[in-house]
Amino acid sequence: MLELSILGFLAEEPLHGYELKERIKALTGHVRPVSDGALYPAITRLVGAGLLDQHTEPGASAAPRRILALTDRGREELLERLRRPKQTEITDHVRFNTVLAFLRHLPDRREQAAVLRRRLDFLQTPTSFFYASGKPVRAEEADDLFRQGMLRVARATGEAERAWLRETVALLDQPS
């Protein structure tokens, strides 16, 4: 997801490393913080693969800054990752939010809707944090006040997300 975040933010504008880190941190930092030890090797890999370009600009009052920009190959890679997210990028809420943050870059509304349908299909499957005899435990069945809370919040969040997904898919399915 780090690479997708890098490609996605750089599709919007060239940035230097610190600005890029701050944007990634704002997107996922409270859940999955990004360290320099992860960010800069990922940038190096993407530059090496020809997906990013870098050049140096003078700093305002400091040392020169390394500016990163998306190459044409990088844009194609971003679009491909958005068209065909991995299954974990559909099923994991934080990863899906990263896909969602950049889905607008896909120019084809049908492709955008297809990604949202995959998430909606996943969310239609009954699930729980807890199971009894192989069956998902519902909030009303939990014997623990705190587990009831977890399950009620998850159910409300899931209902809201499914409603938004249905509305958005219907909107994307309308002729332009």
Rank of each mutant, 00 (worst) to 15 (best):
A163L: 10
H16K: 09
P136Y: 03
G17L: 03
G48V: 13
T28E: 04
L2A: 00
R118W: 06
G48I: 13
Y131I: 08
Y131N: 07
Q54F: 06
E22P: 11
L172Y: 08
L27Q: 06
V169D: 01
R117H: 03
L151K: 02
G149E: 08
E89F: 07
V94N: 13
R95G: 08
L70R: 04
A132N: 05
Y131W: 01
P175D: 12
T28C: 04
G158P: 05
R166F: 13
L15C: 07
R166H: 14
R147M: 05
G74E: 10
L10A: 13
D143I: 04
Q174N: 12
R104V: 05
P136T: 04
A11F: 05
R138C: 09
Y131R: 02
E159F: 09
D144I: 07
L120E: 01
T91H: 12
F9H: 11
T127M: 07
E80H: 13
A154W: 13
L145P: 10
L15R: 10
H30Q: 10
L27M: 00
R104Y: 10
A38N: 15
R147L: 05
L165E: 11
V137T: 07
A38R: 15
V137N: 04
S128Q: 02
T98F: 04
R166L: 14
D173G: 03
E57A: 04
A26P: 08
P58I: 11
T44Y: 14
R162H: 08
Y40K: 01
A154Y: 13
F129C: 00
L2P: 01
S5D: 13
Q112V: 07
V99S: 02
L145A: 14
T28M: 08
N97M: 12
L27A: 06
A49K: 15
A114C: 08
Q112D: 00
R83T: 04
L145H: 13
Q54V: 07
T168R: 06
A69E: 11
K21A: 07
L106E: 04
R155S: 08
P64Y: 09
L10H: 13
R45H: 13
D121M: 08
Q87W: 07
H105A: 14
R166E: 14
G149V: 08
V31W: 14
R138N: 11
H16Y: 14
A154L: 14
F130M: 06
V34A: 01
G134T: 03
G50Q: 01
A139S: 09
L165S: 12
L165T: 12
L78F: 11
P85G: 06
T44W: 13
A69G: 15
R32E: 14
G74L: 12
P41V: 09
E13W: 09
F96G: 00
Y40E: 03
T91D: 15
G37D: 04
V99G: 06
R81W: 02
L27G: 03
H16N: 14
V47L: 13
G8R: 01
D108P: 06
Q174I: 10
R95T: 06
R119Y: 00
R109D: 12
L68Q: 09
P136K: 06
F102K: 02
L120R: 08
I24N: 03
L151E: 01
R152Y: 01
I6Y: 07
L10W: 12
